[in-house]
Amino acid sequence: MAEVPLSAEERDGLVAELALGVLDGEERAAALRALMADPAFTPGLIEDWQRRLAPLYDEYTLVAPADTLWAGIAARIDDADAPREGALRQLRIWRAGAMIAGVAAASLALVLLFRPVPSSAPLPEPAAPVAIAQMTGAADGPVVLARFDPASGRLSLRASAVKPGALAPELWVIPPDGKPRSLGLIAANTDSQLPVEARLRAFMTEGATLAVTMEPVDGAPHAAPSSAPVASGKISLI
């Protein structure tokens, strides 16, 4: 098997093979072991290859999935909400992920933070793509994850690293006209759900910006923000 430390050529070769996915079984496990033991290896080397290869995704043909896809997802999310089942499921996913993706998955930063807020009602069947956004600001600033389900008109939010104080985080949607509309105050440093007013739902679309500012609790939702955003991000439809 490969010597450690690896020669530059051998390291480059293994990294390229893992990024491309041509290794399987024991060969793949051996490659991972060799890289892990190599002081000059970092997951960034595999990420670099994933970035280089990304244009190839254009070559996949678009094929519309069956309409039953969304119903199936909703049913399976319901199943996963049962506590024991959820734990088992997570274990299975972690194991599957560790087996196949290994370094690749870790390097994709598949940090899995955003669990759904438990709800006694069954999840509505999504009729349209769900909108997601990750809002960030300064390196030590708040991170807010948002998921908007057009079928229910509800936003699921997870806010972390919000500085405690007299001011509360207020969420805004900024459509292409550039004028922020308040979606309301959100819970700091925990999960919350927020119903989105019907008149604002049309703004929750690809490319619109979500932003969080720190505002006085009194008078919320406000007509306009009083300070610069502490976190912002664009909406993606998935």
């Binding site: 994933q50 399976r76 899995l112």
Partner: peptide, 18 residues
Amino acid sequence: YIKVWNRAGRFDSGRASP
């Protein structure tokens, strides 16, 4: 989709588009 919705994908926007 369940991976992305439930466990939420937190992607590194500096490295890749969503």
